[in-house]
Design a protein around this nucleic acid. Structure first.
Length: 261
DNA sequence: ACATTGACCTGAGAGC
DNA sequence: TGCTCTCAGGTCAATG
């Protein structure tokens, strides 16, 4: 599930619930989600530190530990944070649990184990090592930057939007939503897009991502004209009420409105 | 350079 | 009820 808006919501959840707490213990439950760090090393290095500030780049979330190092979280398909108190039930598939001195906990939950945790010293180096492009919701990203990234590509618009080395953060769901709002067919080639279409995609990208965050990523809180709640067989386009269609692009199920796009 | 496919994982839901 | 099949918001490697 986690694309840029989801991860931004996780970030705010972390800040609200778990930032600034003293970690008494950390419990790694599954080596599969550990990237460059072992369970033993986590147990060694994390306790006695305080959870610090956080930042996000694309689908990656960084959490600083006492100003000493960062934990980089990637949520895969099914990851999320779950904060709970002593008297509350834990999450379903905890893969790493922080125990706070005050008696509460933060779990990194990931049912399908496709997420990954890394311990890093420098965020920039990490972003570079992953080959990530600029964050898709970066205020410094101008229309000209955007065009420069995409106009040289012969890939389909949706594939290009999901390419994390071009821009980081857009995944399957929001690529569909952005192209729907921009009125561009997902299989349209970047090289065939007009200036007007580039501008439309650029503007809709920022709008869609921001509105999804405002809606806390909940389908029922999304704007009326979002495709997102209608991406299912038989679903109706929120703008023209024609039946939405599904095709495969880059091996991913892709919904679009045949009349609006 | 790009599309496609399968692998990595687990579980929910559909159809029988 | 239980089985099988397909699918799921991510990424990576191999192949054409």
């Amino acid at each position: 599930m986690p694309e840029l808006p989801d991860v931004e919501v996780f970030k705010r959840y972390y800040e609200r619930k778990a930032q600034g707490k003293f970690v008494s213990e950390v419990r790694p439950k599954d080596d599969k989600v550990l990237g460059n760090v072992s369970a033993a090393s986590l147990r060694e290095r994390i306790p006695e530190n305080r959870t610090g500030k956080s930042s996000r780049h694309g689908k990656h979330l960084f959490v600083e530990m006492s100003g000493k190092f960062w934990l980089a979280f990637h949520f895969g398909m099914t990851g999320y944070f779950c904060f709970y108190r002593e008297d509350e039930p834990p999450s379903d598939h905890p893969r790493l649990i922080f125990d706070f001195e005050e008696g509460s906990h933060l779990a990194f939950d990931c049912q399908r184990r496709l997420g990954e945790i890394n311990l890093i010293g420098d965020k920039k180096d990490f972003v570079e090592s992953k080959g990530l492009g600029p964050d898709a919701l970066n205020a410094d990203l101008s229309l000209d930057d955007f065009k420069e990234v995409f106009s040289g590509s012969r890939a389909m618009a949706k594939s290009a939007l999901m390419d994390q080395s071009k821009l980081a953060g857009v995944g399957n769901i929001y690529a569909d939503e952005i192209l729907f709002q921009a009125g561009v067919h997902p299989r349209e080639k970047c090289s065939d897009l007009s200036d007007e279409e580039f501008k439309e995609i650029y503007e809709q990208m920022a709008r869609v991502l921001e509105q999804a965050i405002d809606a806390e990523v909940k389908p029922d809180k999304m704007p009326e004209d979002f495709l997102l709640p209608h991406r299912e067989p038989g679903g109706r386009c929120p703008k023209c009420s024609k039946e939405v269609e599904k095709v495969k692009v880059s091996g991913r199920g892709s919904y679009f409105c045949p009349s609006c796009q």
